[in-house]
Amino acid sequence: MTSLPATTERRLGLVIDLDTCVGCHACAVNCKEWNSGAQDSPLSDVDAYGADPSGAWLNRIHTFEVTPEGAPAQIVHFPKSCLHCDDAPCVTVCPTGASHKRSEDGIVLVTEDMCIGCGLCAWACPYGAREMDPVENVMKKCTLCVDRIYSETLAEEDRIPACVRTCPSSARHFGDFNDPTSNVSVLVAARGGIDLMPEMGTKPVNKYLPPRPKTNAATRTDPARPAAACQPDTPRPEGFLGWLDAALDRLG
């Protein structure tokens, strides 16, 4: 059914911390790895080792330069995957019912064997979250690792999305946004989590934590370059070297 549920019991999603993301692409690589091995069909590449490689990814890391007025530019690494929107336009445009939003946890999924590969859902998404698989010719998207989070065979600590599990800087967090005490709800409240392109009316579930404000470079003391005055004197050498040092000093 491509009509959207009015509400969902849980609203599972991600919080992505733009302050701590180091742009290492590990989340995208682990996403690709997990979804190439564990889904209905692999997440394909074409000409992967050739001159013009191309393929489907569910998570891509963009890098932006942000220039404040009268201050140096700063670099923000920006991971982007499906935001599992409450008002997901990709779901309602689907003519076959392949694209759907689950009423129990709000995850937006594609039933691959119902997908005709028309691409209209990708047109409807402002975030570029959906990509056509070049080999399977069906639409692929982030599943929020639905096959990990409900797994009964994986170890408890692995029952989170692959991208969250692998992030070395803890920039990605997974949880239920309907629960005000969940880790993600607390983070969003504490750090002022934001929606991407709110003007599109998609009501994204995933939230981004903005970079913390930079301290002013002019007033900052740099611990790597201590002031010359603080430098300890060079120790005085003794013996022959001491005599030579004193003699050379006297020469001026």
């Binding site: 404040p68 990509e131 903005p210």
Partner: peptide, 24 residues
Amino acid sequence: TATGLGFIGKVRLLERPHSGENYL
């Protein structure tokens, strides 16, 4: 608005996710 970073300043793409083209 796409990045939510407008409150800091002007936003410009520095690097695409991958060097090649993709479906999008």
